[in-house]
């Protein structure tokens, strides 16, 4: 039984990122893999799962999410035990060491990623993004919407290189360490990038390549968005 949990959609559910959990569960089910997707709100204990999806949210709720996740402890434990974690936007910042809050102060994160997110004098990063690189799930397309810029420690790998858009702000997007994946891309990112979804599923299932899904409309969506982004450059 593959268990997918969307973490705190009541706090980190502003940008439609609950779609990532929906996509993972459906893509597993379509291949006959027994699976479940649950949304765990911040007033309950975080269930044990194989994949955790954390989404984007607003400043205040983001700080509250860190507090609750620290108190709860499950996410850190499961991450140490090899669970897959997909963290998007505020989720990426939550997994980092620290992030900037709009009132000018800084808040601590969970410290699973060796990165800090800082305030920026640049305008808010809003728009289509293309991320490329050597990994098999790339290129990615998505939509970003964030104010902060993310500074990785040198040893921490990004998810990929930004071809268009802002991402972390240094020409890269997100972070990747072990089975923890961070990105700024909404869309939701797994709806627009089925190869990334399947890569995460394969990680969680300790499987090799997964069989393709018949009549999968998301492949056409991926190609279309990539084409639009390329033409716009």
């Amino acid at each position: 039984m593959l268990r997918v949990v969307t973490v705190y959609p009541d706090l980190l559910g502003t940008y439609g990122d609950r779609g990532n959990g929906i996509v993972l569960q459906r893509r597993a089910a379509l291949r006959g893999i027994e699976s479940a997707h649950d949304e765990a709100t911040s007033d309950e204990r975080l269930p044990v799962a194989d994949i955790y999806c954390i989404g984007g949210g607003e400043d205040g709720p983001q700080q509250l999410a860190v507090e609750r996740l620290e108190q709860d402890g499950t996410l850190k434990e499961r991450a140490a035990d090899g669970a897959v974690v997909l963290a998007v936007c505020a989720g990426l910042q939550v997994l980092g060491r620290s992030f900037a809050v709009s009132d000018g102060t800084r808040a601590g994160g969970l410290g699973l990623f060796e990165l800090d997110t800082v305030a920026s004098a640049q305008p808010r990063a809003v728009g289509e993004v293309v991320v490329d690189g050597a990994a098999g799930y790339l290129p990615l397309t998505g939509f970003e919407n964030h104010a902060g810029r993310t500074v990785r420690d040198e040893a921490l790998a990004p998810l990929g290189r930004v071809i268009s858009g802002v991402g972390n702000g240094d020409g890269t997007d997100g972070a990747l360490v072990g089975r923890l994946v961070g990105t700024y891309l909404h869309g939701p990112v797994l709806a627009r990038n089925p190869l990334l979804a399947d890569w995460l599923l394969a990680l969680a299932l300790d499987a090799g390549e997964l069989a393709p899904i018949d009549d999968d409309p998301s492949r056409g969506l991926h190609d279309e968005r990539l084409g639009v982004a390329r033409r716009a450059r």
């Binding site: 940008y15 439609g16 990122d17 809003v126 289509e128 939509f143 919407n145 709806a191």
Partner: peptide, 9 residues
């Protein structure tokens, strides 16, 4: 709005 992610809500 340029981002239709809300379709998942």
């Amino acid at each position: 709005g340029f981002d239709p992610s809300w379709l998942y809500d």
